[in-house]
């Protein structure tokens, strides 16, 4: 019995050392510039790869995966939104941006005026087209009614 324990301890020691050496090697390797460049190249190749894109799209279309992704995105989104809502810096940033936009619009009102004019013109055009179409259909209806009353074909 003692013999067996002693033998086990002897085997554990070199195994722990091996693991530590392996960890140190991996850490060195991962933190090295060469591996960083290599990783960057791999990521770039993957992101530019049509096959990977197809694979991701295919996976996302799977009902199981899609549900998981949706759930993940929703949860992250809620968390991010909650953080953003409470952020005073963001509010200040938005206020600054709004002020900037308003100032810009006050100084250059022409595009906005043009936009409103185009929208109004589009609305009038739509109403006019509708009135014309209704009258056109009514013309045919009146003709058909008169023909029917007079017993013409």
């Amino acid at each position: 019995m003692d013999d067996r324990n002693d033998h086990g301890r002897r085997r554990e020691r070199p195994a722990g050392l091996e693991a530590r050496i392996a960890d140190a090697l991996v850490t060195r390797l991962v933190e090295s510039r060469l591996s960083e460049a290599l990783m960057e190249q791999i990521v770039r190749a993957l992101s530019e790869s049509k096959d990977v894109e197809q694979l991701v799209i295919h996976l996302l279309r799977q009902p199981d995966v899609n549900g998981v992704v949706d759930d993940l995105v929703d949860r992250q989104l809620e968390r991010v939104l909650a953080t953003l809502r409470g952020s005073a810096e963001l509010r200040e940033l938005v206020r600054e941006q709004v002020d900037l936009y308003l100032k810009h619009l006050t100084e250059n009102p022409e595009p906005v005026r043009q936009l409103i004019q185009d929208q109004s013109r589009g609305l009038v055009r739509e109403i006019q087209a509708d009135v014309r179409a209704r009258a056109y259909v009514a013309d045919d209806a009146v003709d058909a009614w008169v023909r029917r009353v007079l017993g013409r074909a």
């Binding site: 055009r125 087209a129 014309r132 209704r134 259909v137």
Partner: peptide, 19 residues
Amino acid sequence: VYDWGDHAADVRRALERYR
């Protein structure tokens, strides 16, 4: 005669709704 000018396409689109 009917002469819808530049608005002919709009009227035709509206006509499709009533037919």
